[in-house]
């Protein structure tokens, strides 16, 4: 009798094996983006790894972000990531009303011609803060 109960538990244990998220190993990345020492809200932060899928996130009203990878996983691929930050938005429809387009306010040296980089370290929680300075050429992504 005890044996059959033991068998049930062993089968249960086996059935839960293999339930872990797939995809490459990523590390959690979060931080704050400021422009001239003021938090930059509604900016898209994109981390582009040397190979593999980029991660991105949008900053909240305090300029804080947590990078998203895909399928609900949060983080970025470890390694030296190129970082792009932009604020441009297209016109879009919200609750039946047309919202106006938002022009780019971040200089091109932080997005199109970015010089920002961040080394995402494996197996730890990375904090990537970016203190941007206004001024310099701004490049719109035209349509």
């Amino acid at each position: 009798m005890l044996k059959s109960i033991a068998v049930v538990f062993v089968l249960l244990a086996i059935s839960t094996v293999g339930c872990s998220p797939d995809g490459p190993e990523i590390s959690r990345v979060e931080g704050t983006v400021t422009m001239d020492e003021k938090p930059l809200a509604g900016a898209i932060v994109m981390f582009v790894p040397p190979g593999g899928r980029p991660s991105a996130s949008e900053t909240d009203s305090n300029g804080k972000y947590v990078l998203e990878f895909s399928g609900g996983r949060k983080g970025a691929i470890p390694g030296l990531n190129r970082v792009e930050i932009n604020t441009a938005r297209l016109a879009y429809e919200k609750d039946g009303k047309m919202m106006p387009a938002v022009k780019e306010s971040v200089p091109a040296k932080y997005n199109r011609l970015t010089t920002l980089e961040f080394n995402v370290e494996q197996g730890k929680k990375n904090v990537a803060d970016f203190a941007l300075k206004s001024g310099g050429k701004i490049m719109e992504e035209p349509n």
């Binding site: 490459p24 582009v48 593999g52 895909s70």
Partner: peptide
Amino acid sequence: SENIDHSASGYFSAFPYMQ
């Protein structure tokens, strides 16, 4: 797979002879 090797470089770095 959505994890395929990706450059995601913006337009300007992809076509550096432009703009």
